[in-house]
Design a protein around this nucleic acid. Structure first.
Lengths: 225, 225
DNA sequence: TCTTTTATGTCATTGAATTGTCACATAAAA
DNA sequence: TTTTATGTGACAATTCAATGACATAAAAGA
């Protein structure tokens, strides 16, 4: 049950920073760099929470806010460069749930988002997540998120990745993997592991190097360098 | 599993000293001698902890600290020549996690680093590492680190080095090595050992003397003198 | 049920890394 | 100086992992 977050921010560096933080928390991320696109993404993806910059090209944050509020009560956090009180008041009137003034600490932003989600009952307590770099596995929901995007894994791929992530930096021999993933009574080619690793790496795209080959032995998952 | 540490210090003697101490602890080490390079190294390598001198060429430690803090909460320990209280206060405001005043004992620095890492949950307790000088082998991840840098070993090289490191200062005859590394049923030239030793020594570069020849017998791994 | 899609295992091929052997150089011991 | 042991470079044989193709099995859908 990955939580969907829409990040609306035109400055790409900042957007990327925010994305990185939330991707590590296992959020499913959607991004827009202008207000028009934001509304489209909002309508199509129904995020659980929106982070919205005020200064935007095309349509400004206020207008986006108003439009969103016409049909929904989704929590919205506004980003503003100015810290003037009047802005805040105006925003709250329009229905913003919280505020953060640039420059801000990404940790504070994450905390605010979590607080809002808790208030709206979206966050479950029993989540069981493991993150390695931008790769997050949620053991309770069996979901894997890479860089804010949901990864579609087959059962074997999931089991294998799950084992490796739960044992980051531990090298497993092919036989160990066969035992732990395929089952102790599996009798088959150890090369089967290779094939599943190959398919996993394909899905990990440019994070594929996280699964490292230990020649003459097996595989290991480690941080991307 | 190897913890990444970024050491930012312009005085090369001191940097080397720090490096040696942390390499013995099995850290993965990155070094910078000025603030500009430090920021680049920080962004590319995502260290788990940063040791940061205040007086630096190009960009000073304060500025580096501020930049780092814009996007991350990584633990930072600052090195300062002066011990004035105001410096410390200023540093803490910027988000430094700890302080150490020159001249300092490297042991104290290592202790502080470990404490911070424990606090941030980076250190695991049951790591399976053996260190001899600046050479560290991590048996669970099958990684070998020399002087903070990852060593790329072939399977035979790894097995051989692993045996020698687990039995530091014990001399093995060629036949024993053949048995223990190549397998009890291996029948081949005992000189094969020599070749693998040669390849290992090459990779150990100026630490090659750690593998000592026991004339008329075999080999032994000991401290570099 | 039958069909279609997806997941999985096997296998052959390819290219690269590893390894063992040998010949010769060098060093140590006799 | 001779003998013996070890270091080293080159080469060929071997092993190994990656990959693509295919066949079968399982699941989903009609």
């Amino acid at each position: 049950m990955a939580i969907k977050i829409l990040i609306v921010e035109d400055e790409s560096r900042l957007r990327k920073l925010i994305r990185d933080y939330f991707s590590k928390e296992g959020f499913d991320i959607f991004e827009s760099e202008d207000g028009k696109d934001a509304l489209v993404k909002y309508d199509t993806n129904h995020p659980d929470i929106v982070i919205l910059d005020i200064m935007l090209p095309e349509i400004d944050g206020w207008t986006v806010m108003k439009r969103i509020r016409q049909g929904s009560n989704v929590p919205v956090i506004m980003l503003t460069a100015r810290s003037e009180e009047e802005d805040k008041l105006f925003g709250y009137e329009l229905g913003a749930d919280d505020y953060i003034t640039k420059p801000f600490s990404p940790k504070v932003l994450v905390a605010k988002v979590k607080a809002l989600l808790k208030r709206s009952g979206k966050i479950k307590v029993d989540e069981n997540k493991i993150a390695v770099n931008e790769l997050v596995i949620d053991l309770s929901s069996h979901k894997v998120i890479l860089n804010g995007k949901h990864l579609e894994l087959s059962p074997k791929e999931y089991d294998l990745l799950s084992l490796l992530m739960q044992n980051k930096d531990i090298a497993f021999s092919r036989d160990e993997l066969l035992n732990k993933v395929w089952g102790y009574d599996y009798f088959g080619d150890a090369r089967t592991v290779d094939t599943t690793i190959k398919r996993l790496r394909n899905k990990l795209e440019n994070y594929s190097e996280m699964i490292q080959t230990v020649r003459g032995y097996g595989y290991r998952l480690s941080d991307k360098k």
